[in-house]
Design a binder for these strands. Structure first.
Lengths: 205, 205
DNA sequence: TTGGGACGTTACTGACCGGTAACACACATT
DNA sequence: AATGTGTGTTACCGGTCAGTAACGTCCCAA
């Protein structure tokens, strides 16, 4: 190679990460993407390091083992998911009812554009070893997400806010997983209408 | 071993299958159970053969490769799932409305008793290789299941039967997947009430 | 200028996995 | 008694995987 390492990364178009980030960030980003494409057990650490324009040794210097890297990826994914709540607050400031509709729109759009399902759910399906550290990450993230939605329904003035929030979570999670197993023609196509009708019904009384 | 092979199987309590079935059936049953416990990619063919009280050679004589065995397992699982429709018809003969409630009861009960999710969905999450034969098995089974429920809703006299059926599928699939990722305290706890209320709402007009 | 920390490269280990070959054995049918 | 089918046993192959060791390189800060 005649170019410097960073230039080599930037020049090499088959690498997943071409920014000037540090190896650690590139590794996490590449791992998230590869896990999405092939599943956690379907990707080796070598492939992750290579996609990040790095190498296995550097990966293991930052993450003691593959499981730790998996946990870090899931934490990053869940913290990115958390951003939706502030985004909704910024888009519809002080209007929780519209924020709730916005949440449904977001979910329906994501399901329409991507049939690969939720990273956290997919990880939960793959990781069955009892006591695996990733399970706590997944559980905590999902519980927080549900709690946020419960709170949003409450703020929107829905009397039975908990029931509504839980039903909406079931619908959206079911929709994501139906897209994955049934494909594009699954029953998730009408998700938005169903959720909107449900919100209407809960908002009346 | 002093006993005959069949006796050895029956005596050996750490084997998953102790019946007098032929090796092929024992292998499929053991594979289904092990896939449930550890995931498809988490189980090797050696472990399956051993759990079935058989061996790898016999396994490969019946199934050309592991993927074929996976497909056979999924077909068996889906055909067992199909039995619910005739069971419901036998339990509530000529009463599709009660059959629909029975379907909800069944789903809620299963989710309450088992947090491991749907075998077909779990397989769909794990198997990402494009064109993998198992994907068609999964898709066909899921589509048939949805279609059966649509038909049941229609028979039950629901005007918007397709909407109701699809919403119910989303709720139930979401509930199963929530149990898996969130655990026992997830929003799937109120599945039955939510489904019943939804059926009520759709039955009025 | 010189140290040191971060990173890259190569090579390796031991375990596991999917799949196959060769041979031995039991049993039912004829 | 002979035959063929289904099955069990052992050993092996090539590949992949997670993880480690040793060494070399780059670059920044003191």
């Amino acid at each position: 190679m005649s170019s410097t390492p960073l230039q080599a990364i930037a020049d090499n178009s088959d690498k997943l990460v071409t920014t000037l980030e540090r190896p650690r960030e590139r590794i996490v980003k590449s791992a998230i993407e590869l896990f999405r494409q092939h599943g956690i057990k379907g990707v080796g650490v070598d492939a992750i390091a290579e996609a990040a324009g790095s190498n296995k040794m550097t990966l293991y210097r930052h993450f003691g083992c593959k499981d730790d890297l998996v946990c870090e990826c899931l934490k990053q994914v869940s913290s990115e998911k958390e951003r939706i709540w502030t985004d909704l607050e910024n888009t519809y400031p002080g209007d929780p009812a519209k924020q709730l509709r916005g949440w449904v729109d977001e979910a329906a759009q994501r399901i329409f554009n991507d049939l690969r399902g939720c990273d956290l759910v997919n990880a939960a399906v793959e990781i069955k070893e009892a006591g695996h550290p990733a399970q706590k990450v997944i559980m905590d993230a999902k519980k927080a997400h549900v709690q946020h939605l419960v709170e949003l329904c409450r703020m929107a003035g829905v009397q039975q806010y908990e029931q509504l929030a839980q039903a909406l979570v079931l619908l959206v999670e079911g929709a994501r997983v139906c897209g994955q197993s049934i494909g594009i023609e699954g029953p998730q196509q009408r998700l938005k209408q169903t959720c909107d009708a449900l919100i209407d019904a809960f908002s009346k009384h």
